[in-house]
Write a protein that binds this DNA or RNA. Structure first.
Lengths: 167, 167
DNA sequence: CTAGAATCGCATGTTCGCATCCACTGGTGT
DNA sequence: ACACCAGTGGATGCGAACATGCGATTCTAG
């Protein structure tokens, strides 16, 4: 579905979206808030900056911020630079010729599934996410960033609490 | 989207579906027809047999065949034993508590995306695939979701992730 | 100019899915 | 009973993705 890298990217983008469009956020700050390895997150954010989704500012007070209005950034734009989206276009059955004319038995079904999936990613913007209002868990409201523990309490918050609920 | 393993599984299942429900097909035969490494395919088919999608027969004339009518086997049933589908239910933002009550900002959007995706897999059965008969120009194109155009037939795809032009 | 904060680029270690090989078990036909 | 055939299961190699660490570079504030 999504690679780990894409998931990290989404976490960071959501954090920045909710923090505010104008302010720069440093890697360490985002990493701590989103529970993503800082060094790895830095690379991801750099890729997003190259892709034009983020813009970066070096030096004192620098960091990353969104390069466009939140409504202009959809989830696909975030995921696309990090994953090989083109693999979706490959024929699932591995046929050399598989298009709308000469198709494998799965072509129509698979094309529809992919279109819906990618379309969903494209239709959801960061603005939608930022507007989301409900009781939220970890992700802080823009005002109260987080009471960052000064001591590295490295006991990883157990993410393995698999919520094995059915849809 | 799909792992290589799942793709192999789909190829094999489609092959068997179109070959006929009652007949056993050997690993080598399927591997040759679907261009999948035989040794690896054997493992995949074993997993599908354990999951109850296939049944196997040892010995001379043995092989694999579908364990149920084609209409009762949907794509999700094929993919599910091979991938960790439960990861879709995990919170994308990694929050421990993320459900309909206390949700991360992406919860609603992500839940919708996943539901659509899994639903699509569930709604497509092997019967549909086996019945698929492509006659060029005759089969009606059932969808016009081309408007969002996430799957252009061209190779130029990465650009349109950004819904706007660069400044 | 200098110090400090943050990115950038490279090197390295770890994990996991993909793929192969081979000995074993069990069923079939003679 | 015997030989053959085909799935079963364990062990292993391989490579890409994931993750980390460090030094160099670039920018800002004073």
């Amino acid at each position: 579905m999504l690679t780990q890298t894409s998931e990290y990217a989404l976490r960071a983008m959501v954090y920045m979206a909710r923090k505010g469009e104008d302010r720069y956020a440093g890697v360490k700050e985002i990493a701590k808030a989103t529970d993503v390895p800082a060094n790895y997150l830095a690379k991801i954010l750099q890729q997003l900056a190259k892709a034009g989704v983020l813009e970066s500012q070096k030096g004192f007070g620098g960091g990353f911020r969104v390069a466009r209005p939140l409504a202009k950034i959809n989830l696909l734009a975030i995921v696309d630079p990090l994953e090989n989206i083109s693999r979706f276009h490959r024929c699932v059955l591995g046929q050399r010729d598989c298009n709308d004319e000469i198709a494998c038995p799965l072509h129509d079904a698979w094309k529809r599934i992919c279109s819906e999936y990618l379309g969903s990613l494209q239709n959801t913007t960061l603005q939608d996410v930022a507007d989301f209002k409900r009781k939220v868990g970890l992700v802080p409201e823009p005002l109260d960033i987080q009471s960052i523990e000064p001591m590295p309490d490295d006991s990883d918050s157990a993410e393995n609490a698999e919520t094995t609920q059915a849809t």
